[in-house]
Design a protein around this nucleic acid. Structure first.
Length: 188
DNA sequence: AAATGCGCCAACCGCGTGCGC
DNA sequence: AGCGCACGCGGTTGGCGCATT
């Protein structure tokens, strides 16, 4: 409840003040990047004030995470990435941050946009294809669990050490629930 | 050439959660 | 235990550019 009030106030402050909104300029990007380089990407509210950027903290955070971060991968999604997104979405639904966690250099926002723009239709189409059955997906998961060396066709290069379906960075997600999910789904 | 429609993507918004005091 | 704050997430919006009429 208290949080709700704070959030409403926050929103009111943002909408009523003369804070910059909309697209970021190259100058703003430079200032933000320089400030973060010096002080690190945290305390966004005070960062926004101290850096001299006439932006709210949220806006700064989003700009950094989705655009300025040095490890961001720009450009088109590869076929492998598309395939991975399709499969992960089938398993996880709109859990964009989780999906993004499996695609190094891609942000949740980027994946969400890409899904809405390109893959949603594709996914609907694939749902109708018997070849893309959940049975195959279960096999894929078993395969991943059994091969502990991470040697998978969806590997993203030599520096990709994580296992394909390892969600350990987001808590204690095992794979059992995924299997359960798929089994339930197959049972009409 | 101008008007209109549409798709894409950056950015915004509201809400929930976690943490420190 | 309750409060304030910072942060993260997912849905939505707005604007730009391209295609079509």
């Amino acid at each position: 409840m208290a949080n709700k009030v704070i959030n409403i106030l926050d929103t009111n402050i943002r909408s009523s003040s003369s804070l910059n909104r909309g697209a970021w300029t190259a100058d703003e990007d430079r200032i933000l990047a320089q400030y973060i380089d010096k002080h690190g990407p945290r305390r966004w509210k005070s960062l926004a004030i101290r850096s001299g950027l006439n932006r709210c903290g949220k806006s700064c955070r989003l700009r950094w995470l989705n655009y300025l971060r040095p490890d961001i991968k720009r450009g088109n999604f590869s076929d492998a990435e598309q395939d991975l997104i399709l499969r992960l979405h089938r398993l996880l639904g709109n859990r964009w941050s989780l999906i993004a966690g499996r695609l190094p250099g891609r942000t949740d926002n980027e994946i969400k946009n890409y899904w809405n723009a390109h893959l949603r239709k594709k996914a609907k189409l694939m749902e109708k294809l018997p070849a893309f059955s959940t049975a195959i997906q279960v096999e894929m998961i078993k395969e991943t669990e059994e091969s502990g060396d991470g040697d998978h066709e969806m590997s993203y290069g030599d520096d990709e050490e994580d296992e394909f379906f390892d969600f350990s960075t987001k808590g204690t997600y095992g794979l059992d629930w995924v299997k359960t999910f798929l089994e339930l789904e197959e049972d009409p």
